[in-house]
Design a protein around this nucleic acid. Structure first.
Lengths: 223, 223
DNA sequence: CAGTCCTGTGACGAACCCGTGACATCCGGG
DNA sequence: CCCGGATGTCACGGGTTCGTCACAGGACTG
């Protein structure tokens, strides 16, 4: 269990309460530290505060979701329904508000673990799109067996499209999932990177067969 | 989605709100009826009220869990933490309290479905209208297996008609749902786009068999 | 510190889509 | 049979969306 919370007092009391319930608790006081720890210790649950010194909690959550399906519970003082929706949309599994009741939090964690630990198909390590192969972990992309060099943004863009193979992904979704929450700017940036991506992975970039545009809707990956 | 709730007013408003979100909602007014429906229609989510005329909601939840792992969300007026814990211990996945915020409930349902449905990669929602197949998420429409190219408006129009298959949809409704609120102008624009749609999806656009006009009322989709 | 690569922005043209108006056509009722 | 309202059809102008390029700033490396 990883506890991402900046207030030392809250962190401490939560730590103790959870320890009493039998959890091994790791701590992080900022979003960056949390993400770092996440990769280091691969916890089975993440408790995430929204108000962090460095990053927005929503952004942290989205970043987490880019890497793993670990259960995430947002713990926040913000009780507004909009925040709840935003948190869940960011990929969190649950959203509980302070002041916390330890027993309830614990019950929610158990309910979530129960659900999450069911046999589930692990996220495929490589995504295929016809003759394009995307190594999600390795970061290696090959087209027809030949390795191509993608930049970080191009890679994330391709992954995001492949994850929703066949479905239209809107510019807004792409901006949110590739560029991150709170990115300001028009969606034109997506076009540019789609173009750059096409140049690298499409046989004929002018007539794309894998990264196709759904005019007025977004982009879509087809095999 | 199965809604087990005894208060008719709450049931109705919830039903409408969830329908707007695109769910097919089944209803039950008692625990016994709920369990019966559960087996009959195998819903993908269960919303369960705690105060039921016949049985305790907790007992219903436990009974549900003996049969299936379907996601269960308890919807209750009881805000006490003990009830939350009891509900989750009874096997529920989430516990939300009244008064409800539709958006939040919807977000929680989505979060839960995301978690619960992980094994089966998101089933592509498709609407069928005879030999016309509409991929709601993919934005792909095929007629007799052949993919046709629809513009955004044509696509939305078709989706809206298919959602109410068999029923007449008025011009006003279409204007509101396809073009958006506050659209100013006569309903003639609908005619034009219906025509353009017919040209693309009907075998004989002059004698439409799928997008038929209900003179003086609106349009209707028939298989 | 210089060079290189990546990224985001602005601009521009082309393709496309949309809404409107005009006219033809159909349907039901008097 | 005729007429009026409703619907079908078409062409066109304006607006939007997308593809593409060039460029400047930033990050990273050696």
């Amino acid at each position: 269990m990883l506890l991402i919370e900046d207030d030392p007092r809250v962190r401490r009391s939560l730590h103790l309460a959870l320890q009493d319930e039998g959890y091994e608790v790791g701590e992080a006081a900022s979003g960056a530290a949390g993400l770092h720890q996440l990769r280091a210790q691969a916890p089975d649950v993440v408790l995430l505060d929204l108000m962090l010194p460095d990053t927005d909690g929503f952004a942290v959550c989205r970043e987490v979701r880019r890497w793993t399906d670990v259960p995430v519970i947002i713990v926040s003082a913000r009780t507004d329904s909009h925040d709840v929706v935003a948190g869940l949309e960011a990929g969190a599994d649950d959203y509980v508000t302070k002041p916390l009741v330890a027993k309830e939090l614990s019950a929610r964690i158990r309910a979530l673990m129960r659900r999450a630990h069911q046999p589930q198909a692990t996220d495929p390590r490589t995504l295929d799109l016809g003759d394009i192969s995307v190594g999600v972990d390795s970061g290696v992309v090959t087209v027809g067996g030949v390795e191509v060099d993608l930049t970080r943004t191009e890679f994330r863009l391709l992954v995001e499209l492949c994850r929703n193979e066949g479905q239209v992904v809107s510019r807004e979704d792409l901006l949110e999932r590739v560029w991150g929450y709170g990115y300001l700017g028009d969606g034109r940036i997506v076009d540019v990177h789609v173009h750059r991506l096409r140049v690298k992975v499409e046989a004929d970039p002018a007539n794309p067969h894998h990264v196709v545009t759904a005019r007025g809707l977004g982009y879509r990956a087809v095999p």
